[in-house]
Design a protein around this nucleic acid. Structure first.
Length: 574
RNA sequence: GCGCCGGUAGCUCAGUUGGAUAGAGCGUUGGCCUCCGAAGCCAAAGGUCGUGGGUUCGAUUCCCCCCCGGCGCGCCA
């Protein structure tokens, strides 16, 4: 247990029970980092009323029973009833040394691991990925990495848009043109998609054929399926290249697109019908969930089966949630999907509860996120008004980073500069996306995300590279060194290092990667202050030098590990 | 009309789940390289936490009414 908050929590709970009886065993000791001390315990203020004593008396009684052996240097009763806590320097030293020796940055596996499905990225076949797919891919991947690091079993599900109406018009258009899908790069298919779309909107005759083609696709017509497979294959190559460049861990085996659920749709609908949960309404088969009304004040349905006999996304999503619960045995399902789909996903979740598929302790959560905006405050688009292609965005990021690296580190060989440019450029884009509260929109701004000041990837990468430089120069193995905390900057750094597991737990609970970003920024800032005030290589004694080297090495480990969990590289030079 | 999400320094954003004097970066002003990477550090100035109520020892945080902005609301996904 390297986290002082947990250890102090145990000690204070024990003291509380000794002071006021076992009925208080479950009370949150409310240990918080403090501006006035290392930590503060706020439990006395909340207990005062139920105990019918003044908060200060409660705090004093708890302090009288507190066993701080080996951990607490001193305590202080302050203000209306706050308990300020200072930790023993020896305790901090030993805990940091343990973190350093364990090589896991202090993170321990969760006592009750879960099977967590994460639905993320989900691009559309036969369309290029655009900036809209960035957030789902990057946020979902960070959550997958963090939850895995905490010991959970993560089942990545890339819910590809590889089925449905668009394929009718795409295949029909391909047949019209006599084109061979093999000959087209994905970029051509992108243009192809737009042409098909235009035709679909302009020609009722074409639209009718497209709808018929959808039906033959859904009914398994071999010729139709042949074209479909070519489209899927070409798209998958494109997606994989982007995932590799972007550093997203999705693999082919994580693909669980809409087509996977096609064979289940009829069965899902008839199961819902037999339970009386799906009823005929205006020619469609509908699931009604209480609490949802439309514009006209009438109950809002999920359309499980359309008037024309086809199935829409509601049917697919119902089949998917059932599959994830009953076949994948998920205990937790995370949908990393944009905020506009909040109502739809809530209806899917409630319908699954209503059908008895989803029951506690299993749960389904929408990890909603806002839009990427341009400088005009509107959804990011190119100057021509088109959606921004993700590949172009990433390449521009790498290019901008490349010129900065060429300026700052001209002495490095070109191959190494290229690798650094990728790490910095891609890292900056991902970090900008991850570091703000995901439910909010954010403005895409190159100069801010590539800055070396503030809460950015380059700042963290720089802090890491600078430590690596010190370690290279030290020419000394410090694995077994002991740590001595004497300067205030060393204490702040040690406390920050020990907070890493807490930061990860926080991300897992809030499903907000930006909490990890905030933590890493604090850590890097703490290291910078330490670096300025505490000479490492030129420390006064060999013992202090070794201690500070180990503190530095541990910081580098935690920063690199934290960035890795965000899906961002940490170069040793930059 | 109903619903969801936002509103914190000039700008861009945090705020550890109700705690003490609301914090960063940019920008502005002023300092720090004969010294481990200055892509860095230190400091100053800058706030009616959208408005008004409520809950209580205590509210940026929880509840309610408004104001402003974004998004969603039957066979697209």
């Amino acid at each position: 247990m390297s986290d002082p908050v947990l250890l102090l929590g145990d000690r204070f709970q024990a003291a509380l029970v000794l002071a006021f009886g076992p009925e208080h065993a479950g009370v949150d000791p409310a240990i918080r980092p403090s501006n006035h001390a290392d930590f503060q315990a706020n439990l006395a203020l909340g207990l005062a009323k139920t105990l019918k004593k003044s908060p200060r008396d409660v705090a004093a009684a708890i302090l009288a029973k507190l066993d701080g052996t080996g951990v607490v240097e001193r305590t202080e009763l302050a203000g209306p009833g706050f308990i300020n806590i200072w930790l023993r320097a020896e305790f901090l030293s030993a805990e940091v040394a343990r973190v350093a020796a364990a090589g896991t940055a202090g993170v321990e596996a969760h006592p009750t691991p879960e099977r967590i499905v994460i639905d993320y990225s989900s691009p559309n076949v036969a369309k290029e990925m655009h900036v809209g797919h960035l957030r789902s891919s990057v946020i979902g991947d960070a959550l997958a990495r963090v939850l895995e690091a905490l010991g959970h079993t993560v089942l990545r599900q890339n819910h590809l848009g590889d089925w449905g109406t668009p394929f009718g018009m795409l295949i029909e258009h391909l047949l019209d043109e006599g084109a061979d899908a093999d000959a087209h790069s994905i970029r051509d298919l992108n243009a192809f998609y737009q042409a098909a779309r235009a035709k679909f909107d302009a020609s009722p005759e074409f639209a009718a054929r497209a709808r018929v083609r959808v039906v033959s696709l859904q009914s398994g017509d071999e010729a139709t399926l042949g074209f479909w497979r070519k489209l899927v294959e070409a798209s998958r190559t494109h997606f994989n290249a982007l995932y590799r460049l972007l550093g997203v861990t999705l693999k082919d085996e994580d693909i669980a697109g809409e087509s996977l659920f096609n064979p289940m749709l009829g069965e899902v609908v008839s199961e819902l019908e037999s339970m009386g949960q799906c009823v005929e309404n205006e020619g469609a088969k509908c699931v009604f969930v209480p609490g949802y009304v439309g514009r006209d004040d009438k109950p809002l349905p999920l359309i499980a089966r359309k008037q024309d006999g086809g199935y829409g996304y509601a049917a697919t999503d119902l089949a998917a949630i059932r599959y994830r619960l009953q076949t994948l045995n998920a205990t937790r399902i995370l949908y990393v999907v944009g905020a506009p789909q909040t109502q739809h996903l809530a209806m899917i979740r409630d319908a699954a509860i209503q059908a008895g598929w989803l029951a506690l302790p299993a749960r389904a959560e929408h990890v909603a996120f806002g839009s990427v905006l341009g400088e005009d405050g509107k959804v990011l688009r190119t100057r021509a008004g088109a959606t921004v292609r993700l590949i172009e965005l990433l390449e521009e990021g790498v290019e901008r980073a490349r010129s900065i690296v060429a300026e700052k580190a001209p002495e490095l060989p070109i191959e190494q500069r290229d690798a650094i440019a990728r790490a910095v450029g891609i890292g900056a884009i991902k970090y900008a996306d991850l570091s703000s509260d995901r439910v909010k929109d954010y403005v895409f701004d190159w100069s801010r995300m590539l800055a070396f000041d503030g809460n950015t990837a380059p700042y963290l990468q720089y802090a890491h590279a600078r430590i690596c430089s010190i370690l290279r120069k030290s020419n000394e193995s410090v694995e077994l060194a002991s740590i001595a905390i004497s300067e205030p900057q060393e204490r702040v750094l040690a406390l920050s290092l020990l907070a890493f597991p807490r930061a990860l737990a926080d991300v897992a609970e809030s499903l907000s990667p930006h909490r990890l970003c905030g933590y890493l920024y604090d850590l890097a800032t703490a290291f910078s202050a330490f670096y300025e005030h505490c000479p490492v290589l030129k420390a006064a004694t060999p013992e202090v030098r070794r201690s500070r080297l180990l503190l530095s090495a541990t910081t580098a480990t935690v920063i690199a590990r934290g960035l890795e969990l965000l899906g961002i590289e940490a170069p040793e030079k930059m």
